Simulated assay, not measured.
Amino acid sequence: MSDPVGTEKSEAATEEKTSSKVTDVDTEVVPDDAVDEDKTEAETEDKAEEKAEEAKPLTKAEKRELLRIETQRARARKAGLQAFGLATAGLAVVAVIIGVLYFADSRSADPVAESPATPTAPAEEPSLPPAVPFPPVPEGADPALKTAPTVEKGEGKLEAGKPKITYLIKGTGPATKTGDLITANYVGVLYGTGEEFDSSWSRQEAITFTIGMGQLIDGWEKGLMDVPVGSRIILDLPPDLAYGDQDDGSGRPTGDLRFVVDVLGAQGQ
């Protein structure tokens, strides 16, 4: 025989467990649709309140407060732009300083740049050669050589092929010889009249020539050989030792000629 008490207890325990399970399920399980509906309703209410607030006209106090806020925002934006401008300018200054430092550093590394700059001297004008004094009388010579001679006409007949030499001043320098570079002053006149036709004195410039090389008329080649430097001589020449006795249209004098020659220098070649 089964125990009726034990059976009742067992049934009661079974009912109690079943009731507990049902309660647990009802408490913990919430449908998702219900949660979503609650959120949607809350959001709808908030938006409605916001629209109601926006639609609501602002009071004077609210408008002043709104204007104050906007003014502060504008000032903040302006201050931000100014700060940005200052920052940009600061960056530019820094860039310039860096560039200058870099340039200075690069110059210090250049051995050419390290040497001190040499001031450029003003360009000198080309110097002219020193003026040669006229007449270029050699040292120790007769002072009379510094003055042009007075030449008179000649007397007597000249012998053909032979120069006539008369010393007015006899120098003490070396005698001239073939190949010497001679420096001389002279006056040339017509032998018969004393009329001057040429003179280095009138040009204020002594002449130079090489003797014994065929550069001169025959009377000078022969008459000025072996003459001491510092001498003044009268050199009378017949036409055959000068320019002849016939006018060839060149303008040169013809006939007998007289020259007074100062031998001022003789430089051997």
Rank of each mutant, 00 (worst) to 15 (best):
K51S: 15
K51F: 13
A52H: 06
E53L: 10
E53A: 14
A55E: 08
A55D: 10
A55M: 03
K56M: 07
K56R: 11
P57R: 08
L58C: 07
T59N: 04
T59R: 05
T59E: 04
A61P: 03
A61M: 07
E62I: 13
E62G: 08
K63V: 15
K63F: 13
K63D: 12
R64S: 14
E65P: 05
T71K: 12
T71C: 02
T71P: 00
Q72H: 13
R73W: 11
R73C: 10
A74N: 06
R75P: 00
R75K: 02
R77T: 15
R77V: 14
K78I: 09
K78W: 08
K78C: 06
G80Q: 12
L81V: 14
L81S: 10
Q82F: 06
A83E: 05
A83S: 06
F84G: 15
F84K: 15
F84M: 15
G85P: 01
L86E: 04
A87G: 14
A87R: 11
A87D: 10
A89I: 14
A89C: 15
G90P: 01
L91M: 12
L91K: 05
A92S: 03
A92F: 02
V93A: 06
V93F: 02
V93E: 00
V96G: 02
I97D: 00
I97G: 02
I97Q: 00
I98Y: 10
G99K: 08
V100T: 08
L101N: 03
L101C: 08
L101Q: 04
Y102W: 09
F103H: 09
F103L: 11
D105W: 15
S108A: 15
S108W: 15
A109W: 01
A109V: 03
A109M: 08
D110A: 04
D110C: 07
D110M: 05
P111S: 11
V112I: 13
A113F: 07
A113V: 03
E114H: 01
E114V: 07
P116C: 07
P116A: 09
A117I: 04
A117P: 02
P119F: 01
T120I: 14
P122I: 05
A123P: 06
E124V: 13
E124Y: 09
E125F: 12
E125S: 13
L128A: 09
P129E: 09
P129R: 08
P130W: 03
A131I: 08
V132R: 03
P133C: 02
F134K: 02
F134M: 07
P135Y: 12
P135W: 10
P136Q: 10
V137Q: 00
V137G: 00
V137N: 00
E139N: 09
E139M: 10
